[in-house]
């Protein structure tokens, strides 16, 4: 690889007059590391992010403590809703997005508090913080890990509701709304869960901290999904979708800026 690159460079310079001959070695040697140096931080950063997300996934695949309880919990939320609201066919249509999002949020909070609490109780959080990596890479790794869990729950829910509520929920746009809503939810959720693990009553504190912050996001997610399910024209849900994207960007930037202060010790 390097030899051919050098070869081509010297070939180009061979066309030009004599004095370039002397310049060739100093030009080639700094050029090669410069390219690598420009690339290295980006790839290394995302490799760390991927490693942390992958670590969470692998731990989960081996223990299955989180995903099973989250899936069972969502199934029970669906049951409770259909029992409590005594849903007939008409009522099911109007509440299905509400059920979807409430179940995603509740199951998601279960996963969030568990994911950070396990990290802290086993002492692995300290080890992660000691590692010579960017703190934000750690944060985005955890976010991606948690996001995957939430998306699995959402997928289970979509299948479950499609079957049990007899509705066609598998629309690409609805999936997009679910993805956008989950991104915002897990971003703030991971930030706040890493604070609530230090509190005395951490399991109760996380919902209290998280719900008021994500409710605005949830509101537009529910509105957008309802409108999409009803096959309403684009104007009905576009503003909500835009609001979701804006909220996601704000949450990502804000959490990125604030996470350092949460985990420093």
């Amino acid at each position: 690889m390097t030899s051919t690159r050098e070869q081509s460079r010297t070939d180009i310079h061979a066309d030009t007059p004599v004095e370039t001959q002397a310049e060739v070695p100093p030009q080639v040697t700094p050029a090669a590391p410069r390219v690598r140096k420009r690339r290295r931080p980006v790839t290394a950063y995302w490799r760390v992010v991927g490693t942390i997300a992958w670590k969470d996934l692998r731990a989960e695949m081996r223990s299955r403590e989180l995903i099973n309880s989250m899936a069972l919990f969502t199934a029970m939320v669906v049951m409770v809703f259909s029992l409590a609201l005594e849903l007939d066919a008409q009522a099911r249509r109007s509440v299905v997005t509400g059920v979807l999002w409430v179940a995603i949020v509740f199951a998601g909070m279960l996963g969030l508090s568990r994911s950070l609490a396990a990290e802290k109780d086993r002492g692995s959080l300290d080890a992660l913080l000691l590692a010579p990596i960017d703190r934000s890479a750690l944060f985005f790794g955890k976010v991606i890990g948690n996001l995957l869990f939430v998306l699995v729950v959402a997928a289970v829910l979509l299948v479950l509701l499609t079957i049990m509520f007899d509705m066609a929920l598998m629309k690409p746009l609805l999936l997009l709304v679910v993805l956008l809503g989950s991104v915002g939810f897990t971003t703030v959720g991971t930030l706040l869960a890493s604070m609530s693990v230090h509190a005395r009553a951490r399991e109760t504190l996380l919902p209290i901290l998280l719900l008021p912050v994500v409710l605005p996001l949830l509101l537009s997610a529910i509105r957008a999904s309802s409108a999409i399910l009803e096959d309403l024209p684009t104007v009905e849900w576009r503003s909500n979708l835009e609001l979701l994207v804006i909220a996601d960007v704000i949450f990502l930037v804000g959490a990125y800026a604030l996470f350092d202060f949460v985990v420093e010790e």
Partner: peptide
């Protein structure tokens, strides 16, 4: 103090 400062900033979104 640190967490309160962070949450005070986050809560302003509401």
């Amino acid at each position: 103090r640190r967490f309160a400062a962070v949450y005070g900033i986050v809560a302003f979104s509401s």
